[in-house]
Amino acid sequence: MGSGGELGLGSGATYPDLRERTVLVTGGGGGIGAEIVRHFARQGSRVGFLDIDTQNSERLVAELSAEGASVRFATADLSDIEATRAAIGAIREALGPISILVNNAAHDERHRLEEVTPEYWDSRMAVNLKHQFFCAQAVAGDMRALGGGTIINMGSISWMIGQGGMAGYTAAKSAIVGLTRSLARDLGPDNIRANCIAPGWIMTDRQIELWLDEEGEREIMQRQCLKRKLVPADVARVVLFFASAEASACTNQTYIVDGGWV
């Protein structure tokens, strides 16, 4: 990693308008989601997050609470829409009306074409796409009452680069672009913005443990314009920008954070 990349990882902007705003992050217990939670908490936002991983989520709450942050966690299997609605209600009750939603949760499980059943396909849609719509539906009323808000849907470059070996995941992630554009059009009159952020290969613990090897490192250095590994903070900083008033005219867009791979 070059010195410019190292310096960039240690810096960050402050957005005063994010203070005291209530943020909901799905899949906030680990990986990119946890870094998004940290970044909002350190802006002074009230942050609620949903995750199925209780242990790591409680550890994150303890870490940020020790820093004086206002953070709440609710357990939810996001493929269960009624349970997800209840968890969002618990966050709302604890922290107030939600004005920022980050639909981050996903699962990039690999699968062979020949082995996919209708039930498995439906499960990939449920864990990667369906909850994004229903979370947006659940918080839209809050945002209208507040006079506006912002929805950030996490996509992926996997479908853009034609990645194979996980058709359910890439299909769901491509559909998020269409979902985002529909939400932006429907909610724009209420001053609610909707954008999609499409990360590249981000070095979360899961990615490092399961997929990164010498061949993968060579591919990163060959395909990215930036010759360094990307980390969750690279994505979190972009999320903050699109959530803030600095991006008040930005909606209906997909922004790629991939070091120049696409």
Rank of each mutant, 00 (worst) to 15 (best):
I98P: 08
Y15A: 04
L226Y: 06
G68D: 08
G96S: 10
R124A: 02
G29S: 05
N103Q: 03
S79N: 03
N153Y: 14
G48I: 05
D108N: 13
I36Q: 05
Q222V: 15
I157Y: 09
R19C: 07
G165D: 01
K173I: 02
R110F: 15
T150P: 15
D51A: 06
D258A: 06
E109S: 12
V262W: 03
R181A: 05
S3Q: 14
T254F: 11
A245T: 12
Q43V: 04
V102Q: 13
G33N: 04
L101K: 15
G148V: 14
G44Y: 14
L212Q: 14
E114Y: 15
E215Y: 13
T54I: 10
Q224N: 11
E209I: 12
A86F: 03
I88L: 02
Q253P: 04
D205T: 06
S70M: 13
E214V: 10
M203R: 11
K227T: 02
V257C: 01
R19K: 11
L64K: 02
S70T: 09
V127Q: 05
R223W: 10
I192L: 10
H111Q: 15
C135Y: 04
P16C: 02
G260W: 11
I52G: 13
G200Q: 06
E58I: 01
L64F: 13
T170A: 02
A66T: 01
C135H: 03
L64R: 04
E214M: 12
I36P: 05
I220F: 07
G68Q: 06
I157H: 07
V235D: 05
V177C: 14
G155S: 06
A249C: 11
G89Y: 02
T251A: 06
G155L: 02
L230C: 07
A126I: 02
K173M: 03
A236T: 08
F49G: 03
K130V: 15
S244R: 10
H131V: 00
I192Q: 12
G155Q: 00
Y255I: 15
E93H: 10
H107S: 07
V262T: 13
A138G: 11
Y255E: 09
L212N: 11
G162L: 11
L113C: 14
A194P: 14
Q55W: 07
L226W: 12
Y169V: 01
I32V: 09
E63R: 11
N252D: 08
D258V: 06
